[in-house]
Simulated scan of single mutants.
Amino acid sequence: MEVMQYAEDALTINLGNEVDEKINRQLVILKAAIEKLEIEGITDIVLSYTSLIVYFDVQKTNIEKLKESLSTLDLSDLTDSTYSYKVIKIPVCYGGKFGPDLDSFKADGLEPEDVIARHSEKEYLVYMLGFMPGFPFLGGLDESLYKARLDSPRTKIPAGSVGIGGQQTGMYPFDSPGGWNLLGRTPIPLYDSSRESAILYEAGDRIIYTSIDEDEYYRIQEAYEKGQYTVDIEYRGEENGA
């Protein structure tokens, strides 16, 4: 592990320089191991593609104490532990007013139904959350769906929009400007402070998009608002070395 300090109240642990599923798995395991140490003063642990940032309260601990505690961890030992994660199914209404860029894939030789078939019903790995609370950067996109961001970003993208930017897919938890190609929208709030977990997923989890029609979109939206809809979440575990 490469431990570096870029701020007075944070330590960064680097595990590599490539976007890789194995590194993501190691970061998730390392985060859990640090949390188990229950180090006084740590306020947050944030994952990126290849690193983990430990934020701490300088009034409760200092960099030397934190480094000493972290030095007790051996990443090679952690790889033998059980890796648990969630699989969250997100219903998406593709195309139409929800996915204005779906037809743009015709220029790449793909009809809308082809794009939907290749984008839905597969597991995407949540590499990290960023840009805004709850925005997942997902890996595992079919190479035929790679598409550069729009030359002119939109000034407002509706919350729940699902899109593609380059080699990744993701979704917008809030109304926001953005330049991703929009395929559809989910009726499930991606950030909801009234839930036990305001954000349904975190780094290391998986997301599966399921295709629904417009009628189903509004049915789910209404059911969720009435507290009558339960998000489909499956809990899984695997060997970390797998």
Rank of each mutant, 00 (worst) to 15 (best):
E64A: 12
Y85H: 10
E64V: 14
I88V: 15
L138D: 09
S76E: 15
G170Q: 12
G227H: 05
T82K: 14
T186R: 06
L190I: 09
I63D: 12
D215C: 03
A107I: 10
L27S: 02
A198Q: 09
E38R: 11
E111T: 07
A7M: 07
F135T: 05
I212Q: 12
V19A: 06
Y218S: 05
Y127W: 12
N62D: 15
W180D: 13
I45E: 10
M4T: 15
R154F: 14
P112N: 04
G237V: 06
A7R: 13
G96Y: 11
F105C: 04
K60A: 12
G241L: 13
K22F: 09
Q26M: 05
N181F: 10
K31T: 14
Q167P: 00
Y127G: 05
R236T: 00
F174R: 00
Q228K: 13
E111Y: 11
D142G: 02
R219C: 00
I88H: 00
E21P: 11
I212D: 10
I207Q: 00
L15S: 06
T210K: 14
N17M: 04
K67W: 04
V58C: 04
D108V: 04
I45P: 00
I23W: 06
L27D: 04
Y172M: 05
E121P: 00
G165S: 14
Q221I: 02
V115I: 04
I116N: 08
P187F: 06
I199V: 15
I53H: 01
A159V: 11
E68H: 12
N62E: 12
